[in-house]
Amino acid sequence: MKEMVSSVKRDYIVNLASQGKRLDGRTLDQLREIEVRRGVIGTAQGSALVKLGNTQVMVGVKIEHGEPFPDTPTSGILVVNAELLPLASPLFEPGPPNEDAIELARVVDRTIRESQAIDLEKLCIKEGEDVWAVFIDIYVLDHDGNLIDSSVMASVAALHDIKPPKDPEWTLPTFPIRRKPVAVTVAKVNGVLMVDAGLEEENVMDARLTISTLEDGTICAMQKGGSGFLERREIEEAYELARKCGEEIRKKL
């Protein structure tokens, strides 16, 4: 879902990009200011509010009893849901999640699941019958671009904020979280790569590539989006950007 952009605005952004410049004065490899607040919601086991420039995403994590999947009887359950709230953008409408919300939730899910940041095996209560289910609910409050990166930041921050549920069956000293996966989305605007695109940049981009990495540079998830294409050298360049900016983001989490 993209907003209409005037050709004047489009040309302006494209021209700036070709000179290595951006609307808000950033360089192509510069993130917007990041603010992370943990423990913002008392009724959630873990929560965080992330501000990335003017984009705001809140994540609440709830932990409840659940039944394990038959093929993983000793493994806890991870569920990620994303809501693009109508209060966050004039383009968001009430109703069941659309493909953008589903893609967002699934990219965050893959980043966290595949990084093995949560030790799901520790979340078993009774094999095949009862395990802990971790529900990550992503609430987009203000959409000014780059929802994937800000949602991963808020999710990881919220997971590291978790206080164990007050339940006699909870026996672990702490919540078993051990890593900080970070997603960096690189936008391609008329052949120029830039990180952390703002909404206006997103509206004119040809394609984007999200690369989620761990502390050691291992890639745990990727997702290309948008109706354009990427050359191989652009993919490799995007990885270098993801690694460099990922380090910066990780320090804030």
Partner: peptide, 18 residues
């Protein structure tokens, strides 16, 4: 050789990715 879909899950070192 223009890439129009790219997704990944699991773990790749940079070298394995290449």
């Amino acid at each position: 050789k223009l890439v129009t879909l790219l997704q990944m899950d699991g773990n790749f070192t940079p070298d394995e990715f290449r």
